[in-house]
């Protein structure tokens, strides 16, 4: 059960993130929702790579009596997470920049007061 907690947290975070994106009208809050969703995905990636009692997968700096490779956590999901975090920063910066520009143009951050429709 205790090892399922990361996955339960993932599900909770994903629901919170999607809730924020769907129901919050403030554009900044939508950006926050996307970030929360992204954290959920990153957490799930890290949780997948974890092994019970595993150590960091650095061959040259292993503690003694570690079973190779089963005593180490998976390195690939960590690499994926790192890439995903970097991409997330770029997208978040861009979204916030757009939100700022929208505020400059319309003087409002409400997602319901836009003009592009139909």
């Amino acid at each position: 059960m205790i090892y399922n907690i990361p996955f339960i947290t993932t599900a909770i975070l994903a629901v919170i993130g999607l809730y924020a994106v769907i129901f919050k009208r403030n554009l900044i809050k939508i950006a926050i929702g996307i970030t929360i969703l992204e954290s959920a995905v990153n957490l799930s990636l890290i949780a997948i790579g974890y092994r019970k009692g595993g150590v960091a997968p650095i061959y040259t700096n292993l503690p003694p009596n570690v079973d190779i490779p089963h005593g180490m956590v998976l390195p690939v999901p960590q690499a994926l997470t790192l890439t995903s975090i970097v991409i997330g920063v770029a997208t978040l910066a861009l979204i916030l920049a757009f939100a700022m520009k929208i505020y400059k143009h319309y003087g409002s951050l409400d997602s319901h007061s836009r003009r592009l429709k139909e």
Binding site: I34, L37, L80
Partner: peptide
């Protein structure tokens, strides 16, 4: 042009959510 920024914002949100679910 305010519309350009607004369109870009919408596309960014949509494609970001899609990409995150692809990653998931």
């Amino acid at each position: 042009d305010g519309n350009a920024v607004e369109g870009a914002f919408k596309y960014m949100v949509v494609s970001n959510i899609a990409a995150l679910l692809v990653l998931f």
